[in-house]
């Protein structure tokens, strides 16, 4: 039985040289562009999450922001777009990962298409929820 890595090695044009000690299952469930997206969004999440954790938990007295501190934080013109971007990227990364897990159940092609659409809807709903919450807080007198 050959795995995708063996198949890539044997593909016309040779693909690129692949490492011998590869753990193929680590990327098989998100082949091609999807895997690269997951790696790119993962790197972005890492940067934005680090900023989020430091700003909200590690430099704040008591480790958590009270209501007034939260308002002061998110009304900062640099923080607001950064936190919005964080929401967009982290929910995309998480849902794309969950989609890969769901695909592990061995769905039909049609079911996989439906799952993909459902996840896009959930992703958009998550962003809508977060942006609405931010808008309420930022515009509150």
């Amino acid at each position: 039985m050959t795995g995708p890595v063996d198949e890539l090695r044997a593909a016309p044009g040779g693909a690129r040289e692949l490492p011998e000690r590869w753990a193929p299952e680590e990327r098989d469930t998100l082949p091609g562009v999807g895997w690269a997206w997951q790696a790119i969004t993962g790197a972005l999440v890492l940067v934005l999450l680090t900023l989020h954790m430091i700003a909200n938990h590690f430099v704040v007295q008591g480790g958590l922001r009270d209501y007034q501190q939260v308002i002061a934080y998110i009304t900062n013109p640099i923080i607001l777009p950064l936190e919005t971007l964080f929401l967009v990227v982290v929910s995309w990364h998480g849902l794309l990962g969950l989609r890969a897990v769901v695909f592990d159940f061995g769905l039909s092609a049609r079911a996989e298409r439906i799952v993909t659409r459902v996840f896009v809807v959930v992703w958009l709903a998550t962003i809508a929820y977060g942006v609405t919450l931010l808008a309420i807080l930022v515009t509150r007198p």
């Binding site: 795995g3 593909a11 299952e25 082949p31 091609g32 695909f103 592990d104 061995g106």
Partner: peptide, 14 residues
């Protein structure tokens, strides 16, 4: 799918 055709084959894990 846009990658190499063989790369889209289901893996052993899947």
């Amino acid at each position: 799918r846009t990658a190499l055709p063989d790369a889209t084959a289901p893996s052993r894990a899947r």
